[in-house]
């Protein structure tokens, strides 16, 4: 669906490169988690993928078309929910009236259901909503567009606790086999259950690019007591009650839920098993 090939990107001639010889492929039917420390280029990557930034070298192709051209047939298949949203002084109804015609598979019922789930009033003026409500409204619109590639930058930022759960249910309900969702976030626990593929970025390159199934088959995340041994651990993190550890999984049928925070720290420390490294 989306192919990033050997791109180089920096924000200026004398600035440090954000990406160097960076390649990545996104397939349909997956929910990708894009993880990385602050300033590693997660948002930059989303912008490059949507043609909002132009790489100095390499290509970003959406089904064979260069996204930098910003062709309507490409733009109607991709939707970006940015971290900060500014909406015009009109109601959601009016917003839909004006914008929906650009998306051939726009589903008004999906929109209404999502708005209802989030308890949003379609008649309310969008610019008067709080930041969290704006995000909810925009996420609803994004899901209703029927775009095959959805990109969300910190979608759970500003959402209250119940809304995070509703968000997860909503996404799980509407991401079908022909759609791809890429979530860039620091709030890994908010979306961990949704993801079926994890992409971690460090420096100018990929740190990890594996499906959750592959990761779970290769490593286990466990909590151990203070007196339990950690000699077999690939990575150990102290917790209030003992240690959180990442160990190699020798029994692929016995998988533990992924602790993405722990996995991220493990990957960052370079302690991932060889079968997972890029």
């Amino acid at each position: 669906m989306l192919q990033i090939s050997e791109i180089d990107f920096s924000y200026g001639r004398r600035k440090a490169p954000v990406f160097e010889h960076f390649s990545l492929h996104f397939s349909p039917g997956h929910i990708y988690g894009l993880l990385g420390k602050n300033g590693t280029g997660k948002s930059t990557l989303l912008y490059l993928m949507s043609g909002l930034l132009r790489q100095q070298r390499g290509t970003v192709l959406f089904e064979g078309t260069d996204v930098r051209l910003r062709r309507p047939e490409v733009l109607q298949e991709m939707f970006l929910v940015p971290e900060e949203i500014e909406l015009p002084h009109i109601s959601m109804d009016r917003y839909v009236q004006l914008n929906a015609c650009f998306y051939p598979r726009f589903d008004y019922e999906v929109l209404m259901r999502c708005m209802n789930d989030f308890d949003l009033d379609p008649k309310a003026k969008l610019d008067s909503l709080s930041m969290g409500q704006k995000k909810k409204a925009f996420v609803c619109f994004a899901l209703a567009t029927g775009c095959r590639l959805l990109m969300m930058d910190e979608p759970t930022n500003g959402l209250d606790i119940p809304s995070k759960s509703i968000f997860r249910q909503m996404v799980a309900r509407h991401i079908t086999d022909d759609r791809t969702l890429i979530i860039s976030t620091h709030q890994v626990n908010d979306v961990a259950m949704l993801l079926d593929h994890v992409v971690m970025i460090q420096g100018t390159h990929l740190l990890l690019n594996r499906s959750v199934a592959d990761i779970s088959a290769a490593v286990r995340c466990e909590d151990r007591g203070l007196n339990e041994p950690t000699d077999d651990a690939l990575f150990v993190q102290n917790t209030l009650h003992g240690h959180a550890v990442v160990v190699e999984n020798h029994d692929p049928d016995d998988e533990t839920p992924l602790n993405l925070e722990l996995l991220f720290c493990c990957a960052e420390a370079g302690k991932l098993p060889l079968c997972l490294t890029c």
Binding site: S50, P72, E86
Partner: peptide, 15 residues
């Protein structure tokens, strides 16, 4: 403004 730039540039119409 960055947000408006995103909204305009991502609108599915040609340049």
């Amino acid at each position: 403004e960055k947000n408006k730039r995103i909204a305009i540039l991502m609108l599915p119409a040609s340049n």
